[in-house]
Amino acid sequence: MENTQPAMHHLNDGVYQNAFSYWKAGVLGGLLVIVSGALGYYLNLMVYAASKMTSTDWIVAGLLFVVVCVLAAVDTVFINYRPMGYGVFAAAGCAMSVFIIVHFSQAVLAGIIGAILFFVGSYARGQKELGETLKIRFLSVVRTVTPLVIMGMTVLAGTALYGAIANRPLADVASLLMPRSLFQTLLVKSSGLLSPAFGSTIDFSLSTRQITAQAVDSAVAQSGVPAASITPAVKNQLMQKYLPEFESKFETIAGGPINLDEPVSQVLYDGLVARLNGLEGNTKIGTLIAIIILLALTLLAFIPFIHIIVGALGFVLYQLLLAAGFGVIVYETQSKEVVVLP
């Protein structure tokens, strides 16, 4: 079988002695900086104009996110001159911040510094990983570099989001993070999971009166009494029995009186927004921080899946660059002092 492994060379081979191509490193580093800047543009849209983003914008942003992670891993392996590597990754963090810094605030400044530190830290950890192994394990580099790069993006976006919404009423914040239509859709789709908490099947797209009527019909059917024998007066009595129960449960969630004729999904959304809007001072700040942390943790939960995508695409690019002669794997000979017990 033909050997498909890249050719190995000894570092002392004349042509590879102290070899480092600044222009090649510049190309790889420049790509990372440019793509990071492009992703920064979409991060800016997500934070400050999410409602104006089209489905195409979201797809492009997702692709740029993956490409940044791939290039970060590839650059870590190929740019082994550390001063230049640190400079490239710091520049990538700065480039990602260009479109966000125009909304300058203390929170945004902290996010920019955090993003740069995480980017530089990802390169440092990647180099440490490479220095501790005899063979280059590209996928290990991906697992080392990617989480810190993602944390850099998350810190930048999270602090920018905080800066954008800190002075808004929390009702606006809720609308930004969870639009009414999305909340209602998710609630209706989750009816099967949430119904046990109410003791019966609940369709949140219906009003409280309609839900009560369904509960009455269900109770009659289970009792074995023919539906035809239930007079309007009896049904009205049953409605009066069940209605306060549902009304009480929904009012507890909404935090106040509800309109019995509005869809429950709308009632609950309005109630939760009203609760948020009533928060002030430190409670409001704490709520905002909790929301941002929750968003960050949600993203970080997907890191194992991101590793698979970034690892696969990055490894292909890594092999292509080696096959094209853009980079060459060499063996290093190192001498160091050790203590032995003869």
Rank of each mutant, 00 (worst) to 15 (best):
V330Q: 13
L186I: 03
H103W: 01
T283C: 02
I253G: 02
T252N: 09
G85S: 07
A49I: 12
P83G: 02
Y41P: 00
Q184G: 01
A197Q: 09
A213G: 00
L134A: 10
G271M: 00
F246S: 03
E2D: 07
T133G: 01
N236A: 14
A160Q: 02
L134R: 15
I292A: 04
Y48I: 04
P147K: 10
V339I: 13
C69T: 06
G131K: 14
F315H: 15
L238Y: 07
G286E: 02
I285K: 12
F250C: 04
G40W: 07
G278C: 09
A197C: 00
A38P: 05
I202W: 05
G286F: 02
Q106N: 11
L161K: 13
D13E: 15
C94G: 11
M53G: 03
V102M: 09
I258V: 15
S105Y: 03
G158E: 07
V273C: 05
V120M: 07
S21L: 06
V339D: 10
L156Q: 05
H9F: 15
Q214Y: 07
A50Q: 14
Y162R: 11
L176F: 08
Y162G: 04
E2G: 01
V88N: 04
P6G: 06
L206Q: 14
E332C: 02
A95Q: 13
S229E: 05
E247F: 00
F20L: 12
G255V: 08
N18T: 09
I116P: 01
Q106W: 10
V102G: 00
S36W: 05
L321A: 09
S181K: 13
I306R: 11
K241D: 01
V102R: 14
G199T: 14
Y242M: 05
I100L: 15
P179M: 04
A90E: 03
L341C: 00
P196D: 04
L182E: 02
V310Y: 01
L170G: 06
L39K: 10
T185M: 11
A124E: 04
P304Y: 04
L64A: 10
I230Y: 08
P169C: 14
G87N: 06
D172R: 12
G325C: 06
V264S: 10
A72Y: 02
Q222G: 06
T76L: 08
T185F: 09
N80V: 09
Y242E: 05
C94I: 15
T283L: 14
F198K: 07
V234T: 14
G26K: 14
I113S: 02
G87A: 04
G152I: 06
T133F: 08
I79W: 11
G29A: 06
G121L: 01
V47G: 04
S265K: 08
L320I: 15
E2K: 14
V60L: 15
V328K: 13
N282D: 03
T231M: 10
L45A: 14
A171W: 07
I253V: 12
